[in-house]
Design a protein around this nucleic acid. Sequence first.
DNA 1: TTGAAAGCGCTAACAC
DNA 2: GTGTTAGCGCTTTCAA
Lengths: 343, 343
Amino acid sequence: MTAPRPATIQQVARKARVSAATVSRLFNHPGLLDPATATRVRRAATALNFRPSRVGRNLRTEATRTLGVLVPTLANPVFAECLDGIAAAARDRGYSILVETTDYRADAEHATTEALLGHRVEGLILTVADARRNPELAKLERERVPYVLVYNQVPGGRRPTVSVDNRAAARDAVRLLVAAGHRRIAMVSGSFRASDRAQLRYLGYRDAMAAARLAAAEPVEVPFDIDDARPALAAVLARRSAPTALFCSNDLLALVVMRDLARLGRAVPGDVSVVGFDGIRLSEVLQPALTTVVQPSRAIGRAAAERLFAELAGAARPAPLLLPHRLRAGGTVVPPRGSSPKS
Amino acid sequence: MTAPRPATIQQVARKARVSAATVSRLFNHPGLLDPATATRVRRAATALNFRPSRVGRNLRTEATRTLGVLVPTLANPVFAECLDGIAAAARDRGYSILVETTDYRADAEHATTEALLGHRVEGLILTVADARRNPELAKLERERVPYVLVYNQVPGGRRPTVSVDNRAAARDAVRLLVAAGHRRIAMVSGSFRASDRAQLRYLGYRDAMAAARLAAAEPVEVPFDIDDARPALAAVLARRSAPTALFCSNDLLALVVMRDLARLGRAVPGDVSVVGFDGIRLSEVLQPALTTVVQPSRAIGRAAAERLFAELAGAARPAPLLLPHRLRAGGTVVPPRGSSPKS
DNA sequence: TTGAAAGCGCTAACAC
DNA sequence: GTGTTAGCGCTTTCAA
């Protein structure tokens, strides 16, 4: 029923009355062949639907021209856009991409990286739950497997990363709320355990609050895949001094928050202002557009791939790369009720 | 600088003073080993960071346990969500996923499928520009490579597909506009050349218009990656009888259309009602939520993977599978200005 | 329970 | 310009 075994280089060689080496040359060093031979071999190959096996080739050359990618989920467009950038860069270089997801479960990082390494990928691009102390990253370093983290960021720059400055970016976002006149600002965040970025962004939130001499609130931690934020939101809004603005650790979360605020009868931005983080394409297009910190996701993916290629070509282990973030003003932030402008 | 050669089964064998066959057995048929031997081999393997090479294994067993996935882009969440479903299903079965994208360029389908087949993927899951006559699909059939199309749909069911009934779904969507009282309805569509789905959805649009004895308009075809729809929209709205409602061939497009209608000073749904197609997660969460046809994207991905596994296990070539679509009423459809309810 | 041997498809010396 | 040969890492008979 299913695929018959593909033709081998030997079969082509027999049919064209040449040696396997000559067939191999046709595909790898066509210049070396006598034109007449080349034609004969080409014809035989076509007749047999021959397509060189990367499996045989990979084994022989000890190079797979394959990259592994590991991200929490592809349901969040921030990772999908990044992967799209990686795929484009890989295509340009003739590399293939093996993809794994963890669904934000740190304990899935082991099995997935093992699978990738088993395939002998030449390098890895990944986003892990926590890049600071991470047994899988330690493994990659011990075994000297080239890798680049995307989105993750490590204090001291001790790992090869491509990211924005999460803390500074979060600070900018919250500062924008402060500038709009908000004094009671809370942060809604995806689980800290599942995301070191979320932790850094919380620090940025605290920085901005401290700089404005405002009281930072405890973070409102929710699961990344939350689909009803009403209980959490109701609790925050019931605090003695309810926030007039919410900073969300990512855009997906911000959108869920906005929808559920509406379901709770709170208007955005009328009752509550909201700021996100990521700048996924869709957050720009909706109305009002989400005010958010834009990360250049495709560029992050592309840069990570290119740094990996550079390292594979012999360059030193890449230093951390900080790509610029950008604050995008949407319509989800206005001054709090009853505030005088330029207070 | 870069990775030293990974340990081989021979090195482990030497270190454990057994043969390579015994090491192999530890990983493939551990029950066959004497417990003491197993421990010794395990220790040696750990000490050397040994991890069986899938490259060697794949060559020997002539099975790669790898699936290829080809989609137009991962920047559209409908494909990313589908891939997320495929990845989850593959993980359950111990399969790996090789991903390629075409950026909606039909002429990239050849090189990308060749790359995948070169890797000897055991099956393919793909969305092509046009599945009816497609040289790459013909190639897959000629070479008897198992494949399942996702989203694509072929009249007569002559190809293995997993999709919704695009035409009927589009008909339902437009019927909903008709039921709201709209008489002048236009369709904004991604390029027909790049998407047979778009063509089918246009047919569904015409069906619904005909059934309501309304005049179908020529489609407003735009590129899938359009980022400013204002020129196209301005042209449609300038027609002698401007539409009061727009049916868009996908959600991403619908969102761009909504934003650009706003930029043109038209309110949605006040001036123009809008319906989308896909039901990407984000379209649900925005406000007003987009009225759209929901496709179960993750389920489509999962079902495609499972049908491929069934075929690999010996089942017959899968028949087309139609998954149910669902109309989701959002806030982007209201009766046209000046219409009387229940006209 | 373990080992020896062969071979999966391919490429790169090396020889002619 | 082309062929011969060896071997990449692994699994699987087959024999002991």
